[in-house]
Amino acid sequence: MSAENPLTPGGPVTPDEMMTVTAARRLRDGRSCFVGIGLPSTAANLARRTHAPELVLIYESGTIGAKPDRLPLSIGDGNLAETADTVVGVAEIFNYWLQPGRIEVGFLGAAQIDRYGRVNTTVIGDYADPEVRLPGAGGAPEIASACREVIVIVRQTPRSFVERVDFVTSVIRGPLTVITDLGVLEPDPETRELRLTALHPGATLEEAREKTGWDLSAVPGLAVTEPPTEAELTALRNLE
């Protein structure tokens, strides 16, 4: 992508960095966010270090209000427990905190996502005889249904962006934003079909279509994402 700035210390902006920064920006300060492992955790921790110091990070391991001073190695990282406002058991995190809709943003990854925003993290191929067995649901089905809005962060490839997921692990019925290494997608308010609403600098609609397994449409007046600021990029690179 051509977002590179020759003056950027540490080299040009990578598509993954553009994706993580875009996701982090969606997390407004002071909100509560149920954070999945991997890319969501990186983006949420970047948000806390930049524009959203009061973002409440909640991990399914029961750590509420975690303020890790480095990127956690897993959702069970001791640093999450030691910096949290409170640590509760797994029964409590799902029953008292997630299920009643107390948590504003659910932040998930995906192996596959389809035209209608259904997410698969279970199997590629047939469930009874899978081509690739993936880790499975974890907390995702209830994060997807109980949080008031959901952000999915996933690299856009023909393998991951499919007409129909091989297995429906999670269904998102409320507000949804899908953030990829190429741009941003949101559901059409009428049909729920995912449409491209923004492209990252240097990415093209043609490329986004090539990497999507359905006939991808874009909204009129497609936006272009602001490139990362130096502060965002420095914070992200210091995280990793």
């Binding site: 492992i37 956690p72 190695l73 897993s74 959702i75 069970g76 899978p130 081509e131 690739v132 067995r133 993936l134 880790p135 499975g136 649901a137 974890g138 907390g139």
Partner: peptide, 20 residues
């Protein structure tokens, strides 16, 4: 189970080999 993986790393290959 509900999530079978190598936390923070990826998939479990012995689990995968048994299922597949």
């Amino acid at each position: 189970f509900s999530w079978g993986g190598n936390p923070g790393v990826g998939s479990l290959h012995r689990f995968r080999d048994a299922v597949q």
